[in-house]
Design a protein around this nucleic acid. Structure first.
Lengths: 153, 153
DNA sequence: TTTACTGCAAACGATTTGCAGTCCC
DNA sequence: GGGACTGCAAATCGTTTGCAGTAAA
């Protein structure tokens, strides 16, 4: 279970990266960036939208999606598609990690499993696949939900 | 890269399992079962539908989805949701394996990676999560697509 | 005969797109 | 001032659902 603390330096990096692309830095966009970077819990587009609206009530969901698309494109955000109930967004794809997905409270925790680091390499050799990226998800019930009979969310 | 040969015995098992549930054995349903069991490449609902229609042209997509839902419910089929372009279906969830997903031809291959077998257990202990199931996906380009510049599909 | 299943069409829900107006740079 | 961005509403698209008719048991 890993905390993902806010990293102001990373926000600067993303802003600079956007500018380089010729993208403009709008308040809505910055708000989305901050929310994603500060979220350890991998929010959904709807959740991001709700949180942006606290500061910018006019912000539309479409804008959130467009910003997310941009970030995905830059490789700065990973989409965790869950099939049902849409996708969740991971603002820290750089260091590879697994996801622990709680089926009760729907939160997604990061897990650092060192053993997985060597895997792509060995799979690549044994299968002939050229592996670009991977995804390791564990589904189950988090420790909090095991203790509390009522869901937390 | 694993072949998944047809297993008539498994068809019988599923049919029996359905009967036990009070479900009826219709031609369309059997067709879907056979296609899933004989597919090593994890077809989409649309693909299954197209293949069923070869023998039963009247079959609707809704029926395919309903049968898939039934099989998922029985734990006999796993849904591999890819976010974009819908889900794919794995008729061999019993023995746990990873998926090698080719980003070019969109085929999904099975990979048996022994190292992963012990993972759930150890993750469970180190995180306090109760893990019910997991999913290991490797994304990249399959060896065929690396050799052929034109996609195969 | 019973009632689960089928096919159709309409509904759904997350995501996307087109467009006219806005406002970063 | 120009063009990227925004917000809105409509469009998409895979999947689900409701329902009247059909057929497995």
């Amino acid at each position: 279970m890993t905390e993902t603390p806010a990293t102001p330096a990373r926000l600067d990096t993303l802003v600079r990266c956007l500018k380089t692309r010729g993208c403009r830095i709008t308040p809505q966009r910055v708000a989305v960036l901050k929310i994603i970077l500060n979220s350890a819990q991998h929010p959904s587009a709807e959740e991001i939208h709700a949180r942006v609206q606290v500061d910018y009530p006019m912000t539309s969901l479409a804008t959130v999606y467009k910003t997310l698309a941009l970030l995905k494109d830059m490789g700065q955000v990973t989409e965790i598609s869950l099939g049902h109930s849409g996708s969740r967004y991971d603002g820290h794809p750089a260091d590879p990690h697994s996801h622990l997905i709680c089926l009760k409270c729907n939160r997604i925790f990061d897990a650092d499993i060192p053993a997985l680091a060597a895997l792509p390499q060995s799979v690549q050799q044994s299968t002939g696949f050229t592996i670009t990226h991977q995804r390791f998800d564990f589904f189950g019930i988090c420790s909090e939900c095991q203790n509390n009979p009522t869901s937390i969310t």
